[in-house]
């Protein structure tokens, strides 16, 4: 099964979409990147990161360093959350 290939996301593409479509478009691009780092938790981490502003998410898609930093933050929050469950 071949992964879907998406063209890079631009601010104008996003602006033309509805809010929930915007998150979907970002999520579809974010997920494979996160999945490469944390296969098992990719769905949850992507879900967490989608709560961030779209403008910041766009920057993260273009900057592996920013993305890695946010993924690390999300992981820590997730572990903390799971520890309190």
């Amino acid at each position: 099964r071949e992964p879907a290939v998406y063209e890079p996301l631009s601010a104008s593409m996003l602006a033309a979409a509805l809010p929930h479509e915007q998150k979907q478009m970002i999520g579809e691009r974010l997920y494979p990147l996160i999945s490469a780092l944390h296969t098992q938790l990719a769905g949850k981490i992507t879900g967490m990161l989608l709560e961030i502003d779209n403008s910041e998410l766009l920057l993260m898609l273009e900057s592996p360093e920013s993305l890695n930093a946010k993924v690390q933050e999300a992981l820590e929050v997730l572990q903390e959350h799971q520890a309190t469950e």
Binding site: A4, G27, G43, M48, L50, H81, Q82, E85
Partner: peptide
């Protein structure tokens, strides 16, 4: 608590409509 039913965070699945944002104002 058995930790098997953690409702947060909402999980994103590729190709599945994202439902994690129920609090977006129209």
């Amino acid at each position: 608590s058995n930790g098997s039913s953690v409702s947060w965070p909402p999980e994103f699945h590729p190709g599945v409509p994202w439902k994690g944002l129920q609090n977006i104002d129209p």
